[in-house]
Nucleic acid binder design. Sequence first.
DNA 1: TTGAAAGCGCTAACAT
DNA 2: ATGTTAGCGCTTTCAA
Lengths: 368, 368
Amino acid sequence: MTDSVGSSDVRKKNSGGDHVAGRPTMRDIAARAGVSPMSVSRALRGDPGVSETTRAQVLATVKTYGYQPNEFARQLRTGGPTHVIALVLGHLANPFYAQFAVGVERVAAEHGTRLMIMSTNNDLGNERQVINDLRSHQVDGVIIVPATPDHRHLTELGSPSCPVVFATTPPNGLEASSVIVDDFGGMQELCGQLLSAGHRRIGLLGLNRAMWTGSERFRGYAAAHAEHGIRVDERLITEHAGDSGWAQRETGRLLRLADPPSAVIAANNLMTIGALRAIRQAGTTTVLAGFDDIDVADLFQVQLTLVTFNADQLGARSAEVLFEQRGHTAVRVDQSGDADQTNGPQVRGPVRDVLPTKLVSYGDSPAH
Amino acid sequence: MTDSVGSSDVRKKNSGGDHVAGRPTMRDIAARAGVSPMSVSRALRGDPGVSETTRAQVLATVKTYGYQPNEFARQLRTGGPTHVIALVLGHLANPFYAQFAVGVERVAAEHGTRLMIMSTNNDLGNERQVINDLRSHQVDGVIIVPATPDHRHLTELGSPSCPVVFATTPPNGLEASSVIVDDFGGMQELCGQLLSAGHRRIGLLGLNRAMWTGSERFRGYAAAHAEHGIRVDERLITEHAGDSGWAQRETGRLLRLADPPSAVIAANNLMTIGALRAIRQAGTTTVLAGFDDIDVADLFQVQLTLVTFNADQLGARSAEVLFEQRGHTAVRVDQSGDADQTNGPQVRGPVRDVLPTKLVSYGDSPAH
DNA sequence: TTGAAAGCGCTAACAT
DNA sequence: ATGTTAGCGCTTTCAA
């Protein structure tokens, strides 16, 4: 007499109970507690329509068998949220993304929501596939750090029941909220500081300019030069996807120029690392600066100025915006049944947040 | 004449179509394609029982409306997998965990499965809650990096339909597969190298010894001392959760002892960072060594030996083991209907993999 | 080759 | 306060 729950020996259509025990269902609990499934449902959801006696009885049974309601069956019936959101990003191994994800997850948890993380390895094909997959999984929303400037495949998201928030890059060709960083201002300030310190030839290890961050950070570099009335030598400017190996090679090349730069700016954290390796290898006194914080930069024992911003906060804010969107665009149809275009819930346009950056200097002294 | 799909104006019980468009359902597609939902279902799953004509017609309609089947409705009906697994870990911001997660996600993707990441912040209470949540979300399996040695709350997982794999720490008090690192051997080798180099007083910034990794790494430290016939000075041994701030303070304290250690071993990556800061601050020539790789260690400009292992591979292997478990413990009842205990699929015991470690020396020279 | 019926686990709407 | 019925989106089974 195995008294295990989950075998649903409670009159089930398919033959009598020789299958392996799956998870217990609400009916199992109901049978064990001697009540109807509805009472179990009500008790679990805190519905007032159950007597204290019944509720206690049900909860005890639930505890005994370690029953957990099937969130998706519930969602299917109610049309409510699944309490899962998705985060689509390039590569979790980059400390910036990891920190970003931490912020997202914390806010999600505050909203009783879990996080599905999907890496694209910055490949558009992967991103497309991931997006499709996402929709099958009924997520409540998506936070995306786009891999490319092509966002056409993202138009299928963004329904009121599944809003999208763009992080680090604004949407291109569609309406959606975004939380980005002051890429332009940060780079302008950094580059301006180097120019003020007397540097006249500043190498730029840039990100692909087809991408928002790449183009903005380049604009900042160019604007600073313009302010100082200095013409940019195109040969000092390079662009790439942004990995450290490439940055190291490219920096090496710059340093071997007949007229090498006296300073180099790397447009992201990984490239800063690569550039530092190259400079060490070359043994030059080239001044290094970069975009993105590096939390062990103080240990590099080198003069290094970084444009920093709070990646955790960027993630947290993105998640907050996502939940705000869900809240405000909630489907609501008034009694009369006609689609009111005037007095409905405030149609809030997409949010477009910009986080400030801060220059931080590590090492012997600030770069001036 | 809005010809939008998703409003299910296809004879639906609740009044005729004034609700906002949700996602299109299979019935919507069926209606648009002029076939029954079953034909859509068959066409989408590649079931042979549909004519080419019908299939083409259906797939075209599906494409037109960007329809994606509801994975969870499917799962509910078939009892099949949800194609989502969960990864429960301490804190994604630690590069080790991030790299680990990357490995897990890659293998999961190879199995058409997505990853839900849940951070516990190394808190048992959080871990418990996360585990419960997990079960509601019908994940196909769980990879867990336990926050504490208390695994009692994990017994509810581990059914054949939702196996668990323990990573970095073997299960305590339950049967489950695990993929861990040779903590003992790695630390023994590292410590032995320092002892061979002549160090007689080696500080240990240890992890909490109640935890597997903490205790194993300590054992390695002790074993190396025993091998060299050197008695350990207990005052050089400390233990903690393993953050860099604490390690920095504690290292500072060790260095200020009347008889300070000539070398310090940090039991994880974050503590290595903290210890280095303290040594730099103190200006001593204390030799530093640590457990876990640090990918920018070459930039620290210090003699540093690390016990390394491939975190990505650790994650990948954990995921592989998870999928193996699912495969082999798949519910299978033969035609005759009797539970065969002898000729069924091989009842594979839990896997218990141990990944090797490798000593890597950064900086001027190896520590000997 | 196609469709109709039933039901996965759950809950809204209606009984009682 | 409790139970019954029906159906969320899908697929298995069975009938045509």
